Computed example of a mutant assay.
Amino acid sequence: MFLQLTEKERTIFELACPHLQVMSNELHTKEAVHFCLQLLQAVDGDRHIVIPAAILHDTGWAKIPEKVSKKIRVPDGEPEAIKVHEEISALIAELILRDVNYKSAYIDEIVSIIIGHDSRKKALSLNDKIVKDADKLSRFSKDFSKIWPKWGDGSVAENLYAELANGVENWFFLSESKKIARIELDHRIKEHHAQNAPIA
C-alpha cells in the first residue's frame, strides 16, 4: 500500500498510526485505503479528500475504552456511541491535517465526511460514497474478514458469508463497490473451501 501513497499521504498515515493501535484499526485502515485507491481508478473522486479521510476516519476509537468499544463497534451498533468516535476522529483528523499544512478547503470536506462516516445514512458527495464503501469493503478482505465478526461479545457471526452476501446488496452506494465486494467474497469462499477440503 505504501508504494501507492504520496509522501504527504504517508506522513498523514504515520501521524495517524498511534491512534490506530486498538481493535485492529491499523489493518482495517490499510484495507480501507487499499479499496479507496481501487475505487479511485474506477470513479472520478478527489484523492486529496478520499485518502486522508480513509486514513483518519477511525482514529477516535483510540480514545474510547476498548471494553466499551467492543460492545458498540459492531455492524449497526449503538448509534449514539458510534457518533462519539466519529466526532473524536474528526477532531484528531483536523489536528493532524493542520499539522501537515493541508489545504483548509480539503480539511473542511474531510472532516465533514469523517463526522458521519458510520452514522450518516446518506452520502454527502462522491468522495463520501468512496470512503463509506471502502470502509465496508475492508470486511471482505482476506485478513480483515477474519476479525470483524468478533466485535461485540466476542462471538463470530453464525454465517459470515451470508452476512457478507447480504452486505453486497445493502451496504454500498457505488456499483463499482458491489463488483469488488462480489469478487472478494468469491475469493474468501474459495479459500475457505480449499482450506477445508478433505485430504485425498
Rank of each mutant, 00 (worst) to 15 (best):
H187A: 10
Y161P: 03
E169K: 13
R182P: 01
K142P: 01
A194V: 12
D143L: 14
K142E: 04
I180G: 00
G167L: 15
G152T: 01
L185C: 07
F144M: 11
G152L: 03
A162N: 14
D153M: 11
A181D: 13
I183S: 04
K150Q: 11
G154E: 07
H193D: 13
S141L: 00
D153G: 09
I183V: 05
E191F: 01
S175K: 00
G154T: 07
D186A: 09
P149E: 05
S145V: 03
E191W: 06
F140E: 02
A194Q: 12
I183A: 12
H193K: 15
W148L: 03
G154I: 11
D186L: 08
H192S: 08
K146V: 10
K179C: 08
S175N: 03
P149F: 08
G167M: 14
S155R: 10
S141K: 02
L174C: 02
I183W: 04
E163C: 05
K179T: 13
E184W: 13
R182Q: 10
I189G: 02
A181C: 06
W171E: 01
I189T: 03
S141H: 00
S141I: 00
E158L: 04
K142T: 10
A162E: 11
K142G: 02
W171I: 00
A165Y: 13
H192R: 14
H192W: 12
S177N: 08
K150T: 15
R188I: 00
H193W: 15
E184M: 10
L174I: 05
H187W: 14
G154F: 07
N170E: 09
G154D: 13
W148S: 00
K178D: 06
A194H: 10
V168S: 02
G152W: 02
Y161T: 11
L164G: 02
W171Y: 11
F172Q: 01
F144K: 04
G152R: 03
L174E: 05
D186M: 14
E184N: 10
D186T: 09
R182K: 12
I183R: 12
F144S: 01
N170H: 15
E158N: 09
K178N: 14
S141R: 00
K142W: 07
N159P: 05
H193G: 03
S175L: 07
I189M: 06
A165T: 14
F173I: 02
K146Y: 08
S175D: 15
K142N: 01
